[in-house]
Every structure is written in structure tokens, then in C-alpha cells.
Amino acid sequence: MMTKLMNILKWPLVLVTFFLLYFPIIIIAILSVNESQSAHIFTGFTFKWYEEIITNSSLRTAIFNTFLIAIISTAISTVIGTAVAIGINANSKKESTKVLMLSNIPIVNPDIVTGLSLMIVFSFVRLKFGFPSMLIAHIFFSVPFVILSVLPKLRSLDKDIFYGAVDLGCTPMQAVFKVILPAIKTGIITGALIAFTMSIDDFVISYFTTGSGFSNFSIWLYSRLGRRTFSPAAYAYNTLIIIGTFTTIMIMNLKSYRKERKRN
């Protein structure tokens, strides 16, 4: 009975899923080439909103800030996260569960709780709201993702590899840089990629920890919703990002496909 039910429901379910996930993105793409500024009517095809990404100075600054924060926070949190993961891996089971539980808190916590907590701490210690506070916030929520992707690689590594290197005359520092880091490279890269995407996409935590007019793309967008200053250039920017990610994925896919064919 169950298999029958599954067979009947299969395609409707796939269709509903595709619709739910992709309908908004298709609408955004259509609106990005819509001549009219109002979103309820399609008056003609245009690329002027794509031009406006560059000419609209407030949008340009917001996009610049988004990438600035994402690049710096990814770099810092990748270093911190990798170091902490190595530390966790070297510690006793009890200690490492404790640290892991703490580091999971920002992942499990809804954004609004994380954002509010940081905002309260920052205003308590009188940190300047704006670029520095937002950067610290982004590092705070990125580090756990780096830890989570580096740790499995470390766990599968032979624990004695570090001792071996030290016995053979490496300083502990050299052992980490020449032996451990190369072995966990893929985990570090995955972690950095996740951190970067989380940072680019973040709205809620940034919204609560920013100040003095510093805004990333999401905050720029939110402050203009339903106002005259809203520009469809936002749709254009998003469409470019989507096209960019899809092309990257396709190229990566094609490359691995070719590699496989060569091997066979």
C-alpha cells in the first residue's frame, strides 16, 4: 500500500518542492529585467537595473560592505576555528564535549537570540556599533561552522602523527603547520566556504549588531522595503549572485565529470 501511495504522490511532491524553492527565484529574475519599477506589471525588457547596481551609490556601498565583512570574518574565523578544532581534538573526551556544546550554541540558537545577546554585550561594554561590532558578530557565528567541518577530518587522522613529527625534530609549531594542516585541508576549505556564505546571507544578526549607518546588503534592503527609495537593482544583484553560483557549480561538476572519464 505504502509503495503505491509513494508512486502516486512522487511527482506531485517533486513539483511542489520545485515550486516552493524556485518560484521566488524565478520571480526575482523576472523583476530584475522589468522596465517598470512597480512589481505587479511587466512593461518591457531592460537591463537598466543591472547598471544601477554600480550607479546607485548606497547600494554599491552596501554590497561592498557585505563582501568586506564576509572576507575578513571568513579569514579570521577560519584561523580561529581550525585552531580551536585542533585543541578540541587533542583534549580529553569530557573537555572536548564541553567546548563542542558551547560552540554549538550559536548554531542551534535562532538568529534573533544570537543577535540580541551580542547587541546587549556590545552595548554593555560600550563597543562602537558599526563595522567592528558587526565583524565580531560574524566571526562569532562563523567559527562554530568551521569547527564542525574541520573536526571530523582531525578525528579520522592518526593521533600519533603529531608526536611522530615532534620526535623527528619538528617544533610543535612546525608539526602543526607541516603535518596537521595539510592533512585537514579539505575540511578547512569547506568550513571557510560555509562561513563565507553564512556571512554574505546574514540579515538578523547583522541588523541587531550594526549601527552608525553601517549596512550590508540585507540591511540596506530591509530599510528600503515598501519605500520609494527601493530599487529593483536589488533583484538584479541577487540574480547575478545566483547565476554566479550556478556557473561555479556547473564548472566544478564538469571538471569532476571529466576527471572521472579520464580515470575510466
Binding site: F23, I25, I28, D201, S218, N238
Partner: peptide, 16 residues
């Protein structure tokens, strides 16, 4: 991959 599209913007698309 839809998650790479800005969440706010997807909400706006539904709103429209």
C-alpha cells in the same frame, strides 16, 4: 542552492 539567494528578497518575491 535557493539558499544562496538572499532570504529577504525571496520573502519579498512571495509578498509581491
Amino acid at each position: 542552492s535557493p539558499m544562496w539567494s538572499n532570504m529577504l528578497l525571496r520573502i519579498i518575491a512571495w509578498e509581491q
